[in-house]
Design a protein around this nucleic acid. Structure first.
Lengths: 212, 212, 212, 212
DNA sequence: ACCGTCGGGACGGCCCGTTTGT
DNA sequence: ACAAACGGGCCGTCCCGACGGT
C-alpha cells in the first residue's frame, strides 16, 4: 500500500532528483551541471541527494539508464502491431522520431546520450560503456527490423542491417547536434526523410511511407 | 631575421597555448578542460596564458576559429583540380574525410566543433553562433559542389543541394560521436560509404570512384 | 540542552569566523584581509567560511554591524544611572572612551568603522551607507545627551548638539588615525581632554569631572 | 631648454604616473589601486611604470612625499605676510583649509595621508613612518604659529601649542573621513569653525576671524 | 530509512606585482 | 620604454562526508 502510493505518484524524492538531473544534463551537459543545481531544480537539499546517490558520477549513470529505458518504451509503442510488416514498423519508428522532434520532451530537443557520450566518451570509461551499450541496443533493434524486412521483401541492393542501423543512429545524433547549433529542428526532419528514401531504395518496391 | 625565426617556427607561445587548448578540448570538452591543464600542456605559466587570452571563453572562441580555418585549408587541398568534374571533387572530399579518419590529427578522432556545440550550444550563445557559422560554411561548400554537379550530370532524382549538405554534415558529426563511444572508427567509414552510395543514386551514372 | 551548549559557549563556528574577520580588518583593513587569513585565524576551512557568508563583502557588512552593536552596548554601560545629570553621563562616556584607549579590545587601538569607511567609502556604496548609519547613531546618541544637558544647565554659548556630536565623532576617528600613525595613543587622550574642555566651556559651570 | 620644456609642462611620463597614482590612491586607497589601473590612468605601459618605480610600494612612498610637498606649498601661500600677527596667519591657514574643502583638488575631498596611514599604518612600517613624519611636519608648523601667538597675545588659558596642533590635525583627518562617509563636506566646515572657536577661547581677546 | 545542517579541502578561473629580453 | 612571460595568490565553487533529528 505504501509502495503503491509512492510508485503511483512517481514523485518520490529520488525520482525528482533523477528527473532534475536528466533535464539539466540534457541542457548543459554533465560537467556543467552541478549537484547544487540538481538539488535546487528538484527542490531538495544536498543531504537528500547524497542519500540516494553516492556521487555525481553515479547519478550520471542512473540518468543514462533511465533515459534509455524510457526512450525504449516509446519506441516499442511506436511500432504498432508487432506481427505486421517489419518495413512498416520501421517507418513507424521513424515517424515516432519525427514526432519527438516536433514535440520534444520538456520542450528540449536534446538527447542525454549524445550529450554524455560526447563529453565523457574519452574520459569516463564506465559512462562511455553505458552509452555504447545503449547505442548498440537501439541499433540492433533497428537491425532486427531490417533483417526481418529482408525476409519478406525482395531486395534491390545487398546491405548489412547492422550497418544501416548504425548509420541511422549516427545520423540521428548528428542531426540533433546540428539542429541545436543552428537552433532549427528542421534539419532533423529533412535528414530523416533522406534516410527513409535511402532505405526505400534498398528494396524493390517503395516503402509504405506517406508524404510525412 | 628575428622575425623570420619567429614566423618560421610558428611555435610562438601564443600558438602553443592555442594548440594545447584545441587538443585538450577535443579530448575532454570545453568545460572539463582547465586553464591549468592548457598551461601545463603548452609548457607555459598562467601569466603567459592570461597575457594572450583574457578569459577561458576567449580561448574557446579562438580555438574554434582556428580549428575551422585549418580544416578548411585541408578541404581545399583535397579537392584537387578545381576545374574538373564537381562530382569527382566531391568524392575526393569524402576520400579526404576517410583518410582523416584513418590518420586523425594528433591521433585523436574528434572534431572540436562537435564537442563545443554539443556542450555549449544551449548555454553560450556566442560559441553556438560561431559553430553554427562554421557548419554553414562547410555545408555550403558541399552544396556548391552538388549544385555544379547537377549542371553537368543528368539527375535521376530531384534534390536540394543544401539539404544533402546538411545531411552529410550531420552524418559526419554523428558518426564521430558514435565512433568515439564505440571506440571503433569503422562506423565512420561505413557511414561515409553509404552516404556516397546515396549521393550516387541521385545521378544517372555512378560516380567515378571505386569502392574505396 | 543541546541548544544550551551551543548558545552558552557562544563560540560557534560562525562566531569565530566573524571575530577573526573583525580583528584582521581592524589591523589590516578590508581589502588587505584575505578570506584565507580569516579562516586560518578562526581555525576553520574555506568550506565553513562560505557556508556562513556567501562573499567577502557579506562578511564585511556583518563585521561592521557586529562591531557597532557591541560598541553600542559598551556605551550604554558607561553611562551609568540613566536618570542622572546628562552632562555627567556624557563625561562618563568620554571616560569610557579614554579607558578603551588605555585598554583597547584585543590590544589593538583601532576602530573597524574608521578603517572600512576610509577604504571603501568611495567605492562600496553599501558599506559606506552602513558606516554612515553607524556614525549617525553614535552622534545622535551624544547629541541627545547634550540636548538634555542644555535643559538642566545654564548655557554660556549657544550651540547645536548635533554639530558637537559630529565634532566629537570626527575628533575620535581622527585621533585614532593619528595615534596609529604615531604609534602613540597619548594623542587620543589629549584630544579627548581638549574636547571635554571645549564642551565645558559651553556651559556656565564646569563639568563635574576631575582632570582624569 | 629641453629640461625647461619638460619641467614647465610638468607632464613627463614619470609625473603622469605619479599624479595618476595619487589620484587613484586617494579614491580607492593603496591596496585597492592596482599597477594596471595607474598605468591606464596615466596612459603608459607597465614597462614604463617599472622603469621609474621599482615596486608598488615605492610609488606609494613617492606619492605620499609629493602629496605632502604640494600641500605644504599651499599652506605657505595661505599664510600671507609672514611678519604679521601669528594668530591672523593661523586663521588664514584655517581659511585655506576651508577653501580646499569647498574646492577640493581634482574634485575629490580626500587626503592621501589619511588614506594611506589608515590602511598601512599597522602593516607597512616605512609607509607609516613617512606619514608620521608628514603629520609631525604640519603639526609643528601650526604649533610654531601658536607659540608665536602666545608671545604677542595675552593668554587666558595655559596650553601646549603642540597639543593643539595635534588636535587640529586629528580633527581635520577625522572630519574628512566622516565627510566622505556621509557624502557631505559640511561637517568639515562646521568642525573647523568649532576648532577656531576653541582656539579663540584660549586667548584673552577674540581672534580677528571674519564671519566665514 | 530519510533528509537537513554543517563542515572540509581541493581546485577553478582570474589577477597581480614583477622580471626579462630588446 | 615596452611587450612577453612569470608564478603565486585571491575569491569563490564544487563534490562530498559527518552527524543529528525525525
Amino acid at each position: 500500500m505504501n509502495r503503491m502510493m509512492k510508485t503511483k505518484t512517481a514523485s518520490t524524492t529520488q525520482e525528482k532528483i533523477l528527473q532534475a538531473a536528466i533535464l539539466l544534463m540534457r541542457q548543459q551537459g554533465f560537467c556543467a551541471t552541478t549537484v547544487d543545481q540538481v538539488c535546487a531544480e528538484a527542490g531538495v537539499t544536498k543531504g537528500a541527494f547524497f542519500h540516494y546517490y553516492k556521487s555525481k558520477e553515479e547519478i550520471g549513470q542512473a540518468a543514462v539508464q533511465r533515459w534509455c529505458q524510457s526512450r525504449a518504451e516509446g519506441y516499442r509503442l511506436d511500432l504498432g502491431d508487432p506481427t505486421g510488416d517489419p518495413l512498416v514498423q520501421l517507418n513507424r519508428l521513424l515517424d515516432g522520431l519525427m514526432e519527438s522532434v516536433r514535440n520534444p520532451p520538456d520542450g528540449l530537443l536534446a538527447c542525454l546520450l549524445g550529450m554524455v557520450s560526447q563529453e565523457l566518451g574519452t574520459t569516463h570509461e564506465s559512462m562511455r560503456a553505458a552509452c555504447s551499450q545503449a547505442f548498440a541496443g537501439w541499433t540492433s533493434f533497428v537491425a532486427q527490423l531490417l533483417g526481418a524486412a529482408r525476409e519478406v521483401h525482395p531486395v534491390r541492393i545487398e546491405f548489412e542491417p547492422d550497418q544501416i542501423g548504425w548509420m541511422l543512429n549516427s545520423l540521428w545524433q548528428g542531426s540533433l547536434l546540428v539542429a541545436k547549433t543552428r537552433q532549427d529542428p528542421e534539419v532533423v526532419l529533412n535528414n530523416l526523410r533522406h534516410a527513409r528514401a535511402y532505405i526505400d531504395s534498398l528494396f524493390e518496391e517503395p516503402g509504405s511511407c506517406g508524404p510525412n
